[in-house]
Simulated scan of single mutants.
Amino acid sequence: MQPAFAAIAHATTSDAPVLITGPTGIGKSLAARVIHLHSRRHAGPFVTLSCASLPENLLESEVFGHEKGAFTGALATKAGHIERAAGGTLFLDEIGELSPALQVKLLRFVEEKVFSRVGGREDLKVDLRIIAATNQDLAQAAAEKRFREDLLYRLRVLEVHLPPLRERLSDIPGLCSYLLASVAGDRKLAVSEEALSVLLRHDWPGNVRELRNVIEHAAAVCTGPLILPTHLPRDVVSSLRGRPPASSAGWMPRSTSGLRPGFVKG
């Protein structure tokens, strides 16, 4: 994660557009919020929009706003996410899902900070910063003409790449401690060495989001102070058949006194 931390630090000192890449569930929205909170725009709004959550006709209105009468049901003028984010940061998640027509309109705004509402003729100017995120390979999408190459260049002035959890298993003990503290409430819960061994042998296709779900499940079914392998979801345990013990990776503590906070030797 050190290259990602360095890239985030650079992004906080700049006002340039940022593209955050990485698989689903890895924490791209959290990275975007961290960049905003430590930037010069921290006092401004942080507005989030998922580009995959709405059909194209509604997405255009959500991004750029619309004028009264622009379409059926447009009973009043509505400001879009761009206007709501004035002075702050607009976070566009899943940017690779934008249609070609919306890519053209967004490119104009990124380059000129000028846009018009749906059904409007007036050019509006807004000062904000754009942070975009995607789990797609946008360079490949551009080569296949599914994403505008010029828009990719404008969004990727700075890039933060978040690697999948399976490539940084040494982060799991610390992440578990953090997640336990947030889901256990007043209970004093710890993860046993055996349970941690199971977690370190899982592939984590859902990344940190999946790990949080696993920790929440374990905390809910555990009645004592110690999370054991039997408290972990069945699919996590069953996925380990035929895999070597995690202790062969060299990370396991050798004594109880050497355990990290939140972990207990079983």
Rank of each mutant, 00 (worst) to 15 (best):
G88Q: 02
H42Y: 14
A7M: 05
A31R: 00
D93P: 07
V126S: 07
L128I: 01
P3E: 07
E94K: 05
I26M: 13
A7W: 00
F109S: 08
I35E: 01
G96Y: 05
I8C: 14
S39R: 03
V63Q: 04
R129I: 02
R33D: 10
C51L: 11
A142Q: 02
F5K: 15
A142E: 03
A139P: 02
A132G: 11
F109V: 07
L92R: 01
L58K: 05
G120Q: 13
T134G: 09
L59T: 04
L107E: 05
F46D: 05
G65W: 12
F91N: 03
K125I: 12
G80D: 03
A6S: 14
L102N: 13
C51I: 04
R40N: 09
R121H: 15
T89P: 04
S39W: 01
Q140Y: 06
G22Q: 05
L30G: 08
E83C: 02
E111T: 09
G25V: 05
V118L: 09
L92P: 03
T13F: 06
A6L: 12
D93Q: 06
K125H: 14
K145T: 14
A4V: 11
A133G: 12
D123K: 15
I131G: 03
I20C: 08
S61K: 04
G119A: 12
A7P: 04
D123R: 15
A139C: 12
I8N: 13
E62T: 07
I26N: 09
E60Q: 11
R41D: 04
R129F: 02
G44L: 01
S29A: 14
L37W: 09
A16N: 03
H38T: 00
Q136I: 00
T72V: 14
L90A: 12
G87E: 06
S39T: 06
G119H: 12
L90N: 08
E62F: 05
V126E: 00
A101S: 15
L19I: 05
E112F: 05
E94Q: 13
D137P: 04
F91C: 09
F71V: 07
H10D: 12
F71A: 10
I35L: 02
A143N: 12
A32T: 04
I95L: 03
L107S: 08
G87W: 02
S116N: 14
E56H: 10
A79S: 12
K125W: 10
L30C: 10
I20M: 10
P45T: 06
R129Y: 01
D137K: 09
L54R: 07
K78D: 02
L124A: 08
A32F: 13
P45A: 08
R146V: 00
V104F: 11
F147P: 10
L59W: 00
A16P: 02
L128V: 04
R40C: 06
T12S: 08
H66Q: 06
F91I: 10
E97F: 09
T89M: 02
L37P: 01
L59F: 00
T134P: 11
A7L: 01
K78R: 15
I26V: 15
A141T: 01
V104S: 11
T24G: 08
P100L: 05
G25F: 09
V47W: 03
V126K: 13
K78T: 13
I95P: 03
H81N: 15
I20Q: 07
A70R: 07
A133F: 14
A76R: 13
V47I: 15
S61Q: 03
G73A: 11
R129L: 01
A7I: 06
V63T: 13
A85F: 00
V110W: 02
